[in-house]
């Protein structure tokens, strides 16, 4: 589903963010992307989202070479990739429902279908009762879950998360991780960037490790690989 072939990314100021990265994530797989801050985790996710383009090598999403995706096609690619950030980027001028419905509005879905899907997504993250609330009225963990609901409401094939638990205490973090696991269990390919090693260890999933832009391990789950 996600494949990196010798991908390098050098920013215009000469900083090498990624160097010769190779890995493949199968459809329906769940993996963690770890490494110190500045190791290139965010850059890797940005390449998948086409927020950045690779300097060398090729990124393939679902057999599609991203180099060949034109600027005007990017929105349609992004509709099929859900993304969750450390800061959930909610819009405070509208309620929870409308925040989650945004990707569906963009896709031009009928209002009825939107309602159905939004409630399904909110139910999945356990916030159905808060659909009419302002995001401001929610706790940090709840806001993050609204962000996740928005990321999955479109039923994307791929879910990316960049430090999704960075602002949350351990108990809430575990909740969120469980949510990702549930989504994965219904077929979503999940890639989570985090430096929370303890959490990664608990999850017992495949781990991709970046160190100064190089991928030092990309093995399928091997016990103790990250100790």
């Amino acid at each position: 589903m996600i494949r990196f072939d010798n991908v390098s990314k050098r920013y215009s100021e000469g900083h090498d963010a990624l160097v010769n990265v190779n890995f493949e994530l199968a459809a329906g797989e769940m993996a963690f992307l770890t490494g110190h801050s500045g190791a290139g985790k965010s850059t890797l996710l940005k390449l998948i989202m086409l927020i950045e383009r690779s300097s060398r090598g090729q990124v393939l999403i679902g057999n599609r070479v991203l180099d060949q995706v034109t600027r005007s096609q990017i929105p349609y690619l992004r509709r099929q990739i859900g993304v969750v950030f450390q800061n959930p980027h909610l819009l405070f001028d509208r309620n929870v429902f409308d925040n989650v419905a945004l990707p569906l509005q963009i896709a031009g879905m009928s209002t009825r279908e939107q309602g159905r899907r939004v409630r399904a997504a909110l139910e999945r993250v356990g916030l159905l009762s808060k659909e009419n609330d302002s995001p401001l009225a929610l706790s940090g963990g709840e806001q993050q879950r609204v962000g996740i609901a928005r990321a999955i409401v479109n039923k994307p094939a791929i879910l990316l998360a960049d430090e999704p638990t960075g602002n949350l205490d351990p108990a809430l973090s575990a909740d969120i991780m469980q949510l990702f696991q549930d989504l994965n269990s219904v077929g979503v390919t999940v890639l989570i960037a985090t430096h929370d090693i303890a959490l990664v260890e608990q999850m017992q999933r495949r781990v991709l490790t970046l160190d100064q832009g190089r991928m030092t391990s990309s093995d399928a789950l091997a016990e103790g690989a990250y100790t």
Binding site: G62, R64, Q73, Y76, V186
Partner: peptide, 17 residues
């Protein structure tokens, strides 16, 4: 219905809908 969640069979082949 777990499978229903992923009912949207995803296609990256056509990027202009």
């Amino acid at each position: 219905s777990q499978s229903a969640w992923f009912s949207s069979s995803v296609s990256f082949s056509s990027l202009v809908s």
